[in-house]
Design a protein around this nucleic acid. Structure first.
Lengths: 239, 239
DNA sequence: AAGATTTTTGACCAGTTGGAAAAATGTTAG
DNA sequence: CTAACATTTTTCCAACTGGTCAAAAATCTT
């Protein structure tokens, strides 16, 4: 089975207020979507950026349109001109998220060296936690709520992708290249350990303190995780 | 340093509406707190239980008093009689949470066998994820928001506890009993991997599917994590 | 520059929110 | 039983919520 891209949920990216009636002229034409203008694209991006900021902290219900509008630097009605519903903004965010969020796993190649592939995957996930913490938190917020908006995609697309990669892992196990263990829980543990640095960032920093809580913590984490997944905690004689 | 219990934030557990003025009799007495009646304790428990249900899913801002009251089976004003402020409920929940949530780590004894101690700790945390998923999600929700209500405790009490246990781990490393690695990130990885099964439960179940998504998933997780922390993924010759 | 279109704004609305006040109802110690 | 207290319900409110709408302002097209 090919890597298979997630289907995108879009479908709701109409320019704005649908059909400014102006196309009464064309009458029966099958609703040509009309390409987005520059301004529309720019404003939508600004809004999505602001929405990410707010949703990722307060969750869907806890976030307010006013707040998003304020962060986006525009009035509420103006924002609603581009996204007529609060849900619409969230939906867009979620579908964009799922695509980019799973890309790292798709990149794990069956024909590479197992340890190199797994290590690279962990690195990539850790980099995402470092560079896109808000996306990680947005995702986490959705999970905590029971993923009402994306449960279907989880059960279909995500499951398919993970099934595929679990097969790859099992092949490696069959070949004796990595230890035989549960490939699904292996993937879970990579997700958990890497995303932890985005989602629980406050806690991580509170504990590491000023001294070690700087940007270096991601390098430390990478080094630690590398060892964990390679050898666990069993002491080995020095090389 | 002794295990040191977390200080409880309480301080706001007054019976209800403060000083039903009734104590004008006692006049200048130093405000005797007056012990909680049976009903007060029961009702407060019911409310806290309902609040846990709601807060853990929607976060602080996303949760409404009406909703909590409904789950608790009482009217909103009645609920407000016991907890005059929404924040009050949340505060109580959080302080109770921190105490029970960290108990497992406190139990990790320096004088035990390292692998036994670590494995037991992982087990306990996993059991908590299984038996108290809502508490786990409540905690996660607070973290995602930047832990505004408990940041102090994280920086003081939690840090102290983790520092202490990190010392224990380092001692074990010095003795060559476990592999030398970063003890803080080791603890983080245990938290992350175990809490994942509560916080991301939907995802875990969506991926494992009906077949393996049953209660058995916790046993599978325990087995997998045991191996991960013991040996990582490096294949070993069969015993 | 005029006309057509798109974007922005201000006023507004109905429903919900956290919470206050007070009246009504229980409960219990003397 | 009854007074003192505890609990519950009813009513109310001001602020906030997601969202509408018409008109004004800005932009684009010709």
């Amino acid at each position: 089975m090919a890597p298979k891209k997630l289907k995108t949920v879009e479908a709701a990216q109409a320019p704005a207020k649908r059909q400014h009636k102006a196309d009464a002229k064309v009458a029966t034409a099958p609703a040509k979507p009309r390409p987005l203008t520059r301004i529309q694209r720019e404003k939508q991006d600004i809004i999505l950026e602001a929405a990410l900021e707010v949703f990722s902290v307060h969750g869907f219900r806890g976030a307010t349109i006013d707040q998003i509008a304020e962060v986006a630097g525009m009035s509420k009605p103006n924002l609603l001109y581009y996204f007529p519903k609060k849900e619409e903004i969230h939906r867009r965010l979620m579908s964009e998220l799922l695509v980019t969020w799973l890309a790292p796993l798709e990149e794990m190649r069956a024909d590479g060296d197992p340890f190199v592939e797994i290590r690279s995957y962990i690195r990539r996930k850790l980099e995402m936690a470092r560079d896109f913490p808000r996306q990680s938190r947005l995702f986490a917020n959705e999970m905590l709520r029971g993923a009402p908006h994306i449960i279907d995609m989880l059960e279909v697309d995500l499951k398919a992708l993970v099934d595929e990669k679990a097969q790859v892992l099992m092949t490696w196990m069959d070949q004796g290249k990595i230890s035989r263990t549960d490939p699904y829980h292996l993937i879970f543990s990579i997700w958990a350990t890497t995303q932890h640095y985005a989602d629980f960032d406050v806690q991580v920093r509170a504990i590491l303190g000023k001294g070690r809580g700087g940007e270096g913590r991601f390098e430390d984490a990478a080094r630690y995780l590398e060892q964990l997944f390679l050898h666990g905690l069993t002491p080995r004689p020095k090389a």
